[in-house]
């Protein structure tokens, strides 16, 4: 579904990503974890086109047909099946919950041949994330945890084949976060791929098929949840070695 190859990003003197490569297979739930400042959100921005890499490529596709999207603007990548949520929340704050999701469904109708009713799609997606009862609220009345779910519903309304989720679980309590985990599993069973950045390690370990660990802008480990959990390098990076 997604191939990222040798991506490098520099901000001034700071190297945010140093030769990152990773792959998201079809219908897979892939986790991306690492300490704060490791470069996870920057990688998301590179994949969705909000950030230009200094080097490297991003490709979308399946089987033998892969398209290099490195030079495409964000909206064209979205039309090729890429959807995302944001760590720093990016809801449409002047609109209601329902309108937020509706806008995405309507946008999809303007560029795809899908003629499902946008209003219906919006309600359906809000139902899926469990926010149907709040659909007439203005979004700036909601807690940050719920806003993240609005973003998930909005991303789903564009019916992406690959969904990038940036900390969807932060701000949720344990019941809500469990429900989120179940939703992610369902979404993948429907055939979507998901790349998940999440700090709730428990959630990541429970639902992901494979995990990449990013530290100092580099992938330092990759494997199944078990493998990653046992990796001493990951323990060191994630918990911090005793420096003093």
């Amino acid at each position: 579904m997604l191939r990222v190859e040798d991506v490098e990003v520099r901000f001034g003197g700071v190297q945010a990503l140093k030769g990152v490569s990773l792959e998201v297979p079809d219908a897979a739930l892939v986790g991306l974890i690492g300490p704060n400042g490791a470069g996870k959100t920057t990688l998301f921005n590179v994949i969705t086109g909000l950030e230009k890499p200094n080097r490297g490529s991003v490709r979308l596709g399946a089987g033998d047909t892969w398209v290099d999207v490195t030079s495409l603007p964000p909206h064209q990548r979205a039309r090729r099946g890429l959807g995302r949520t944001f760590q720093r929340i990016e809801v449409f704050s002047s609109l209601t919950v329902h309108e937020n999701v509706l806008a995405a469904a309507e946008a999809r109708r303007s560029w795809s041949r899908d003629d499902a009713s946008p209003a219906q799609t919006a309600s359906e997606m809000l139902e899926r994330v469990g926010l149907r009862h709040l659909e007439h609220e203005r979004v700036d009345m909601l807690s940050t945890g719920l806003l993240r779910l609005v973003e998930v519903a909005r991303a789903l309304a564009s019916r992406p084949r690959l969904l990038l989720l940036d900390e969807p679980g932060s701000g949720l309590d344990s019941t809500e976060s469990e429900a989120l985990g179940d939703l992610l599993v369902e979404l993948v069973q429907d055939g979507r791929s998901i790349l998940l950045v999440e700090h709730d390690v428990e959630l990541v370990m429970r639902v992901c098929h494979e995990i990449h660990v990013l530290d100092f802008g580099q992938v330092i480990a990759h494997g199944t949840p078990d493998e990653v959990q046992r990796d001493p390098a990951v323990q060191a990076a994630y918990l911090g070695t005793s420096a003093a």
Binding site: L239, T241, S242
Partner: peptide
């Protein structure tokens, strides 16, 4: 404030 808990606890 430190996310590397062990680093912080050491000092």
């Amino acid at each position: 404030v430190e996310q590397f808990a062990q680093t912080a606890l050491a000092v």
